[in-house]
Design a binder for these strands. Structure first.
Lengths: 346, 346
DNA sequence: TTGTATGCGTTATCAG
DNA sequence: CTGATAACGCATACAA
């Protein structure tokens, strides 16, 4: 028996050369037509033949092979926590709309802040991408900046949101400034006893621009900072904790909440207890999610400029991809305090 | 000038052969060590040398090259709409927890139901994946089943959720049965005038298992179906529409809401208007998101078994990947009606 | 304008 | 147990 025992690998899908054969043309020309480059010239009828053959065979270029030779994949990675948050949803929407017409595929990778960073990155970097936008990956940003010199020294990277590292491109949001404004606003309405509502499960309980801004403002006014701790922002938790305060008649005059979801829950809970939000207690949130506007008592919030964030981040990433050696673009945006009923004048 | 104008391609990252050189060993052996196969034997000291060299160089295998030869990427694609939804968030969480320890990277791709399908798939399929789990991609499922024979005939594919196509593996949820149960429950409490709340922006307004179950149940009881249409589930929209009904004193005895978010909003809105949810009006939602349990008036809901869904879907996908020629596994789960205060007996 | 030939970084086969 | 070496599917420099 003269079998040469052919080693048959491959996916079974039609390849470029299958198309070439069908179109009776060389593989190179198929590439020229299908790679979508405009600087090469192909005879219209040749092009037509190729297109037709490709369509007939259901040909799709193999990303891996393409990446191997060209170094490009047409994929960009969006790194973020996929743990639920209405704000993140809004940013995701924004990003989607932005990239609707652009010829890239977005691959969203869940970045778990709790998990071992190096491991997380190694996993995330398995997706062959042309660049990365990392959204609000707090601790990760620094870790990545540190690790990236080893793991991915030359991957275009833009961080977006409240955390950034000076080495790479970023679109930041100055939450500290937003906090300062919010506190100033509250003080200006005559409120002094202001508490800060945050979850114990996060490192944001007593650090980060929001806490620091709060702490600083309170001390500047000669007030004692007071943290209301909840385990998570589940409605139930907030209800328990605030319920106790109501009962003990030890509600503050205002509550600065870590985010809008907490603010909305707090507002709803307090109203349930008969507390008048906006007069008895002021409530302020962060992020600017839609619900704050339509809530029974509209919520004052420090609104993040997410549309501009996304636009800029994509801009910066494109620059990095096109010109990898260019100096990183960096910009910090300022959030906007939207004053509503929940912090009405007393 | 004697420059040979070398064509320099490549990523600049260290390659397998760089590691080989550093470890003074052949490239083949580096592969053997780093590919993580257990069926090959390498001398412990050789292995150590390789590992050390790889670490020192910050070597990471090139996904594209690896995919090209082995046909595997270690990436699985999660296809779903990333338009915000609390339920989707919960499923995402569930999936994340499930795959925490597994050695795969999950790439989430946003599937826009509104967009041109073939185009969406072509984009999504650019990410080199070993298999796909498509979650609640209603129309897409059929479209994919249709297109997939052309675009990706052999890609392991499992659909998960309320929509499935008989050709491929799936883990379905029988929302029709859930609807039947919910309607039976409402009728059993003596309510007859039941309305169906759905968004005009969706094809679910007057089709799909929920609508059909509702429609059927109403007609079976000799009642006239009545759809309450809202443009979207934004709080504001629901407030307007229900406000009108309250004013016109034409509220139904119960409202079956397309999902829990709508149910929560409706409940909150109605209470704002002084309507007693649970006695004046019953409210039932779908999905079983956490908030339904902790809302001021806990909401009756048709709870989707998302943890089991995820577990099975991952199971089925693994089977397809391991044994591509095996017959697709298919299973339909039944949701569970959780009865709470919002549909209390009159 | 098109074809030929080379190499991208791996894995896997086969011979040492 | 280890080292050559042939694919994998494609883009591109270069020749025609």
């Amino acid at each position: 028996m003269y079998s040469t025992r052919v080693h048959h690998r491959g996916t079974g899908r039609p390849t470029r050369d299958d198309v070439a054969r069908a179109a009776q043309i060389s593989g190179a020309t198929v590439s020229r037509v299908l790679s979508g480059r405009t600087d090469v010239t192909v005879l219209p009828e040749t092009r037509a033949k190729v297109l037709e053959a490709a369509r007939a065979l259901g040909y799709m270029p193999n990303t891996a092979a393409r990446a191997l030779t060209s170094g490009r994949t047409g994929i960009i990675g969006l790194w973020m926590s996929l743990a639920y948050s209405r704000y993140r949803g809004q940013v995701l929407d924004s990003m989607r709309t932005l990239l609707q017409g652009v010829e890239v595929t977005t691959s969203v990778t869940d970045i778990d802040e709790e998990y071992h960073f190096a491991h997380t990155f190694e996993r995330a970097l398995r997706v062959p991408i042309d660049g990365i936008i990392a959204f609000d990956t707090s601790a990760s940003v620094d870790a990545f900046a540190r690790e990236s010199d080893i793991l991915a020294p030359s991957v275009p990277f833009v961080s977006m949101g409240a955390y950034w590292s000076s080495k790479k491109s970023y679109v930041g949001v100055d939450l500290r400034k937003g906090t300062d404004e919010a506190m100033a606003h509250l003080f200006s309405t005559g409120r002094k006893k202001i508490a800060y509502l945050a979850p114990t499960s996060s490192d944001l309980l007593d650090s980060g621009p929001r806490f620091e801004g709060y702490d600083y403002a309170m001390k500047s006014e000669g007030q004692t900072p007071r943290i209301i701790r909840v385990e998570t922002f589940a409605y139930k938790q907030i209800k328990e904790v605030l319920g106790d305060l109501v009962q003990a008649k030890s509600l503050p005059e205002a509550i600065l909440c870590l985010n809008d979801e907490a603010a909305l829950a707090a507002s709803q809970v307090l109203q349930g207890f008969g507390v008048k939000v906006g007069s008895d207690v002021a409530i302020v949130g962060f992020d600017g999610i839609e619900e704050t506007e339509y809530a029974p008592v509209p919520i004052t919030t420090v609104c993040q400029p997410y549309e501009e964030m996304c636009k800029l981040a994509w801009d910066f990433l494109q620059s990095q991809i096109t010109e990898p050696s260019a100096v990183p673009k960096q910009q910090v945006l300022v959030p906007r305090l939207i004053i509503r009923e929940s912090s009405g004048t007393v």
